[in-house]
């Protein structure tokens, strides 16, 4: 049984030489589609990494009323510290804020003349971890309302950029990227399907004779499916190899201001998924071709 399986598989590989030119073209086409898909994934991966740096976090700059007394402010701070998913909370008294401002400005930042008449209010920089389940639900807006409603709070600056960008990115991924990947998979399937069909047509005599002597469909199809599998494995391998070469040229292409984007190569699990998907599509299209 195993011997027969190996023999049929070997025949499938050997049959690839029946139409060397067509097989080579298919191999190149599969490799090119893999490369194209890999480049798209490379772009996605790079953007994803950049977004991940800030995606799970939302920040609020909170300013208390200038006339708020210290007791009210401290109570508000305690309320904030008790909030769920709090990651960090930096607080500034008016004096702290003035000192911080002065140190930021360096030598020109001498505000000692304001010490007795400090115009700055109590303030704070609050950051929260955004729970994954809350990313789609306007969770940050709810927090904003909650912080604004604290008795001493005057205004809150909230930049929903990161959270919204992450959400937009997810929408783009779902609406654009998957159809594009599906389209590329369709190209692979058509190319491999046609090549396997060609192999099948040139072997019609053999298929007919095998059928006449009682070969099961699996026995007849297996060598052709093996051909599709080999095309998928070799094509995806070649494509990933080309992707690595292209990556070595473009890795630092965007690593300058204002982008400062380092294009990182796909992690092994992505590469395996890419090769697996291309191979699977190749085998499936071969199966359809010989069915």
């Amino acid at each position: 049984m195993i011997g027969q399986f190996l023999r049929l598989s070997a025949r499938g590989v050997a049959d690839l030489r029946l139409h060397p030119f067509a097989q080579l073209l298919t191999l190149v086409a599969v490799a090119m589609v893999t490369l194209l898909t890999g480049l798209i994934l490379l772009g996605l991966h790079t953007v994803n990494i950049e977004l991940l740096k800030s995606r799970g976090q939302v920040e609020f700059q909170v300013y208390w009323k200038t006339d708020a007394d210290a007791e009210t402010v401290v109570k508000d701070w305690d309320t904030i510290r008790a909030m769920e998913h709090l990651k960090d909370f930096k607080t500034f008294t008016p004096d702290n804020a003035l000192t911080e401002l002065a140190s930021t400005l360096g030598e020109t930042g001498d505000f000692s003349w304001l010490a007795d008449n400090n115009p700055l209010p109590y303030s704070g920089l609050v950051s929260f971890h955004v729970p994954p389940e809350a990313q789609d639900q306007g969770w940050a807006a709810g927090l904003l309302t909650q912080i604004k409603s604290l008795p001493g709070v005057d205004k809150v600056h909230y930049t929903p950029f990161q959270a919204d960008l992450a959400q937009s990115w997810r929408t783009i991924s779902h609406m654009v990227i998957w159809p594009v990947l599906g389209f590329l998979a369709l190209i692979v399937s058509l190319v491999v399907h046609n090549t396997i069909k060609l192999s099948l047509m040139t072997r019609l005599d053999e298929v007919e004779i095998l059928s006449l002597v009682g070969a099961r469909p699996g026995y007849i199809r297996w060598p052709l499916l093996t051909g599709g599998f080999v095309q998928g494995v070799l094509g995806s391998g070649l494509g990933i190899g080309l992707l690595a070469i292209v990556h070595s040229f473009i890795a630092e292409a965007l690593n300058f201001p204002p982008f400062l984007l380092e294009i990182r190569f796909l992690p092994p699990e992505y590469l395996l998924a890419l090769a697996g998907a291309v191979t699977l599509v190749s085998v499936l299209s071969s199966w359809v071709a010989v069915k």
Partner: peptide, 26 residues
């Protein structure tokens, strides 16, 4: 089954053609 037009694989050997009927039986 035997046909007028033989239905054998002309690019294979006599042995291979005959063995085919037993190979499919494993």
């Amino acid at each position: 089954v035997v046909f007028q037009d033989f239905k054998i694989l002309s690019d294979r050997t006599v042995f291979d053609n005959v063995a085919m009927a037993l190979e499919v039986r494993g």
